[in-house]
Design a binder for these strands. Structure first.
Lengths: 223, 223
DNA sequence: CAATGAGTGAGACTAAGTGTCATGCGGCAT
DNA sequence: ATGCCGCATGACACTTAGTCTCACTCATTG
């Protein structure tokens, strides 16, 4: 049952909040949750893992999302997939903030979180370099892009965790728009859509540009 | 004495090479090196740390390099500093490749390496966002840039470790040039530069757009 | 010569993580 | 109902990383 897992995880957070991470042993957690030490280690492989109970599930969902993305997706699929992660944490609410309190305090947990982030980045890199041609430049670009997407996610998430951000939806869109702006190739939207053949009437170009500019202006003003 | 450290580290690599990482206990290493378990843990804080004997020293050198960089350095200082890291590993030669063999085999060591990389990235991010203004966009940009620099380094290093690359000097220059191209200062802007207040004459907008579009067209043709 | 202090070794101790074995409980076919 | 089977759990032993304390040695210094 997943109920046992939740029970254990809750007990762990409870004790960590009171006694701190280091001062809480696995035995403490197990007895607080009313299970045996064996069950603890069967549910979570380690003491650290109890802090990130559904990381594997999210990773799976992200992977699934990338796998099922339309054939012309490219960077858009990745920026889309990373929102799954962000919104999962946002939906967790206070629990995510408790976790943040722990990860910013306990080095071992901070490192563990870092490793989780790297798993996503690796996923993104592979996906992107699968889309691109196999040239070394394209692979470096894929690696940089993946890193940028994760960086954007991390930034917004951290701001939200610190309550520096009230509208994570809007902020992640902005941040990912910045990623798109610096990494989108020609097949991606934004500027690519402004390319016009010579001979198109200036008035048509002007209208299209105004529409695009308005969108940007609105965003700037909002912020 | 640093000699004791080297002795221990050598012994560890020797045993890891023969028995593997997991099958080699700290006691094994200590007795192979002819020291006591106590001395081992005094020299290296943990079993994992014996694989990365001079990481702290490199981190210190990188930090020093950034601190002493000229006032107008910005991204250049960072791309310059990251070469210290790359060339250190290249200078290590076969020892670095042994380490790579371990880090690609043993998950715990892979994670440890990841954490090391994150330390550099954090250093770079702080340095870059110190240079930039304090706007959220600038900070996100700093984070992305730092990630890209580290990604470039990782890519070249990995290629060198796998003997896929004979001239790391040239490859790192190329990779960092790519970073510069996508993250170099103000000149980026593309669509950002097109933002105009309401009331600007259409003809002016049209001219600006045409210039922008020409630039894009050139890029498309080049590529 | 005596005192200090740094580096080392010995050994006890805690706690994480692994593996094994027995037990109990619910479903299922005969 | 009975016996069987699969599965989750609990109990327990064991290894090993990492911490801590104490005693010893040896070189320096007053």
């Amino acid at each position: 049952m997943a109920a046992a897992r939740d029970e254990i995880s809750d007990a762990a957070f409870r004790l960590f909040g009171i006694q701190g991470y280091a001062a809480t042993s696995v035995d403490d957690i197990a007895s607080e949750a009313g299970v045996s030490r064996s069950t603890f280690f069967r549910s979570f492989g380690s003491k650290e893992a109890v802090i990130f109970p559904d990381h594997d599930e999210i990773l799976g969902r992200v992977e699934e999302r990338l796998r099922s993305s339309p054939a012309d997706a490219g960077l858009a699929a990745v920026t889309d997939a990373v929102k799954i992660v962000l919104f999962h944490y946002v939906a967790e609410g206070e629990r995510a903030r408790e976790r943040y309190g722990l990860t910013s305090t306990v080095p071992a947990l901070r490192e563990r979180e870092l490793v989780s982030g790297a798993r996503y980045q690796r996923l993104f890199r592979r996906y992107l370099s699968h889309w691109a041609d196999a040239s070394p430049e394209a692979e470096l670009r894929a690696e940089m892009t993946a890193a940028a997407v994760v960086a954007a996610h991390n930034r917004v998430l951290r701001r939200w965790l610190r309550r520096e951000c009230t509208d994570p939806q809007r902020e992640i869109e902005q941040a990912l728009a910045a990623v798109h702006r610096t990494f989108a190739d020609e097949s991606d939207a934004s500027i690519g859509m402004l390319v016009v053949p010579a001979g198109v009437p200036a008035s048509a170009v002007e209208k299209a540009v105004k529409r695009a500019l308005e969108g940007i202006a609105v965003r700037n003003l909002d912020q």
